[in-house]
Simulated assay, not measured.
Amino acid sequence: MLIVLPPSETKAPGGSGAPLDVASLSFPGLNPVRRELIAELSSLDVDTALEVLGISGRLRGEAEANRELAEAPTMPAIERYTGVLFDALDAPSLSGAARSRLAVGSALFGLVRANDLIPHYRLSAGNKLGGRTLRSRWGKAITAELEALDGLVVDLRSGAYQQLGRFREAVTVRVETPEGKVVSHFNKHYKGELARVLAGCPDEPDDAAGVVRVARAAGLDARVDENPPKSAPHQVILTVER
């Protein structure tokens, strides 16, 4: 089983790992696009990068960091990303086996496994590089890597990151209130909780019903969606009070 998490805009600074080695990253079929994007992103002058990234001058350090992608220190991807989902996941407390079930969708790297070493960077799914959307830049590469995997894929990425490489056979998750309203702000928190439960479960589920079984055993209110959207035919609904 592979649990694919969304990335976060916020990232931990620094790191103690050697500079980025693209050849060492998981999913090597993504390397040609990775190298192109890294070269283009790191070549942007800071003022141009601020415009391309859609960020203000107060985040100038983010644009400056992109210019050092090839030389900057690295850290495991699961520790690089921060924020609500990753707080709930609490990756430092997970076993090695649990971490091996985790990956992160990324605008710059496509997909990275939890222990892949990556530098601090700034690039979002909605940005364009070279005047082209990242969806067009990735094409079918991410989808092909997901299709080649053995076992279940649980796709917790947000819509924008799913667009970079859809996989219709994945189990997706919708977080909603008891009244059926989509949960927005706390969505990431509950997906982090679910990811933690799934990563640490002793027996891997092999379908949406299996994901529901594991979630319920951990005290989460989950069910298989009986009327899923055509774009996500294997959807699980996680019901929460907020």
Rank of each mutant, 00 (worst) to 15 (best):
G15P: 08
G17Y: 03
P19H: 01
L20G: 11
L20W: 09
D21R: 15
D21M: 03
L25D: 11
L25Q: 09
L30V: 08
P32Y: 08
V33R: 14
V33F: 02
R34T: 06
E36L: 13
L37Y: 08
L37G: 06
I38L: 15
E40Y: 01
E40T: 11
E40V: 01
L41E: 11
L44T: 12
D45T: 05
V46Q: 04
D47H: 04
E51G: 13
V52A: 13
V52F: 07
L53C: 09
L53N: 04
L53R: 07
G54C: 09
G54R: 03
I55P: 03
S56D: 10
S56K: 10
G57H: 13
R58T: 13
R58Q: 14
R58F: 01
R58W: 01
L59T: 02
L59S: 02
R60E: 13
E62P: 01
A63S: 09
N66P: 12
N66L: 06
R67N: 02
L69R: 09
A72H: 12
M75I: 08
M75Q: 15
P76A: 13
I78L: 15
E79N: 08
R80D: 13
Y81L: 01
L85D: 01
F86Q: 08
F86C: 08
F86Y: 15
D87H: 13
L89M: 14
D90S: 14
S95Y: 10
A97Q: 14
L102W: 05
S106L: 09
S106V: 09
L108F: 09
F109C: 09
L111R: 03
V112W: 11
V112D: 11
V112P: 12
R113G: 14
R113I: 05
R113D: 09
D116W: 10
L117M: 15
L117N: 11
L117F: 02
I118F: 11
P119Y: 04
R122V: 05
L123Y: 12
L123M: 09
S124I: 00
S124A: 14
A125K: 04
G126P: 01
N127S: 10
G130C: 07
G131N: 10
T133P: 00
L134E: 04
R135C: 00
S136C: 04
G139H: 04
A141F: 00
A144T: 10
A144C: 00
A144V: 00
A144H: 02
L146W: 02
L146Y: 02
L146E: 00
E147P: 00
E147M: 00
E147I: 00
D150H: 06
L152Y: 01
